[in-house]
Amino acid sequence: MDLSDLLSLEAVVPALKANSKKQVLQELAGRVAAQIGLPEREIFDVLQQRERLGSTGVGHGVAIPHGKLARLPKLTGLFARLEKPVDFEAIDDLPVDLVFMLLAPEGAGADHLKALARIARVLRDSSIAQKLRASTDPVALFTVLTQPISSHAA
């Protein structure tokens, strides 16, 4: 299983415009709502709820906002490259410009955690992050994110 199980080409946003953490979350919720057919407000609330436990900005300019939704059929990801970095209250205080949102069905349990770990692992790779920052082409971004594990295993 790699990130292609969570991510579709349509869920790659090459240059998201946002000025704050809240706006980022709103934009993400708006875009994914259309794809999964659930209300934008519900998604935004779930993401906000999670941020209240502590920022999902995991460092090095990367954030992984996530949450659980009752009526979601399967793990759903959405990747956005921000046009300019925003303050995300991240663990290392650096502004964030790469955001991977993960929504999980209510009962996903271990799969949810594994998917989070996988996303963190992929984005931790500095060469991958570099490629993601260098491109605005959705297909290129999607390819970088979903390349097989072996080619970028540390």
């Binding site: 502590g54 992984i64 949810h112 955690l113 931790r124």
Partner: peptide
Amino acid sequence: FGDLAIDPSIKMADLVAFYG
């Protein structure tokens, strides 16, 4: 990197709900 910051003052119940 790869760690999610969690506010130490939150209730364990919330962590249980989010991460099972």
